[in-house]
Design a binder for these strands. Structure first.
Lengths: 214, 214
DNA sequence: ATTAGTTCTAGTCAATGTGACTATAACTAA
DNA sequence: TTAGTTATAGTCACATTGACTAGAACTAAT
């Protein structure tokens, strides 16, 4: 499953969106589902996740991590299925390149209808994990482009954590993390004092896949 | 993989141990490996982990959680294998009941030799996760019995995090967590002031398996 | 040119949490 | 009775955090 930031229809503020694909056959024909596909013999789990993502949505995420292996007995009514679910964060520029069509569409992550299989609870779990990671790690930056203002970072946190944050205090915290690099650039064009642009210099890497790939 | 607390051979202080099984056929015949086994069609992932654990070691852990799905291409030299690894914490009384034999033995988690397959890196990852969880959540108590002293909790932390902790400060922190309940019991028998016994009243539950089992 | 409106940015201050440390309490063993 | 040991309470300096104030730097309107 893929998370991306898109402006809300009403407020215009950035909110979390995910792409879903419509099922074109039974079971759950017509319902929306998470993109996915089979694992072949010649690819690792992560490679398979990447490939399935690209084939169904055209997306190539820069951040991809294993979420959880779901293997309950009755996930599918027709057969036993074990799904090893990955989740990804994509930057806005990448997200804009996604192939939207009759059967592939973006939805607000917090306003989904009934999905196929157990995909609602998978999304719930992913959202929970995302909020958790956000609270500690420096994961928010993978939802942004290379250069960003501190206000944009704050908007990401506000969108995911769903609460307001004090601009001054938030700025103090972010500036204290060594992975954030100040640039000499300023973002022009707003009708107010132009904010400084920053860069993220850290690496994601926590998973065993990312640590020891021979 | 199973973690349990056992007294170190030399110092007598509690340290982390895990049970391993010896491979009796190729590949890696003769080497030690993590206990495991196949997933059948009629059991969930967690049930399969439980059953395989019981069958190979006789253990019935009270804390069992999914660790990670390992699916690299060359994990086994003979065939493609995807392992969905679970990890468990068992209390000392339970650990003592494990079936030890010629082909099942306990090892100190920080002093393992070369294991079969990629099991060394799996253990490393599990240790890393364990330390992480310990730093935040209240997971240490699943390695202890129902009643314990604060010094025992501290020894668990010291064993896992591998550093000394100030007794007074540690006590202050633990007493601040609401899940720890003071009892009227004291542990007699030491050659010093008898420490008060405490109980853990929290529940583990974070995994999707533990949250939404229908 | 001046002013109002906006956000950016740098501070202050009180409350809280943490690490290092001291001191006393309560037991056992000699 | 005393020495040895751990349990437990408390102090103090320091860092972190949340709430808040104020000035800086830009745009848009007058």
């Amino acid at each position: 499953m893929i998370f991306a930031l898109r402006p809300s229809e009403r407020s215009g503020r950035p909110t979390l969106w995910i792409p879903l694909v419509r099922r074109i056959r039974e079971p759950f024909k017509g319902l929306w589902a998470l993109p996915g596909g089979p694992l072949t013999h010649s690819e690792s789990l992560q490679d398979a996740a990447s490939r399935n993502l690209r084939e169904t949505t055209g997306l190539a995420p820069n951040y991809l991590e294993q979420l959880y292996a779901f293997g309950g007995l009755h996930r599918s009514p027709t057969q036993r299925v074990v799904s090893i679910v990955y989740w990804a964060l994509v930057q806005p520029t990448e997200a804009a390149l996604a192939d939207e069509s009759e059967n592939v569409r973006w939805f607000r992550a917090d306003r989904l209808g009934e999905l196929a299989f157990d995909h609602n609870s998978i999304v719930d779990y992913a959202l929970w994990r995302l909020r958790n990671k956000m609270a500690y790690g420096s994961i928010a930056y993978h939802l942004l482009g290379e250069y960003f203002t501190l206000a944009q970072v704050r908007e990401v946190y506000q969108a995911v954590l769903d609460r307001e944050l004090d601009p001054a205090n938030f700025r103090r915290q972010v500036k204290a993390t060594p992975e954030i690099e100040e640039t000499d650039q300023y973002l022009q064009g707003g009708k107010h004092r132009p904010p400084r642009l920053y860069r993220f210099t850290g690496r994601p890497g926590l998973d065993p896949d990312n640590r020891s790939t021979p």
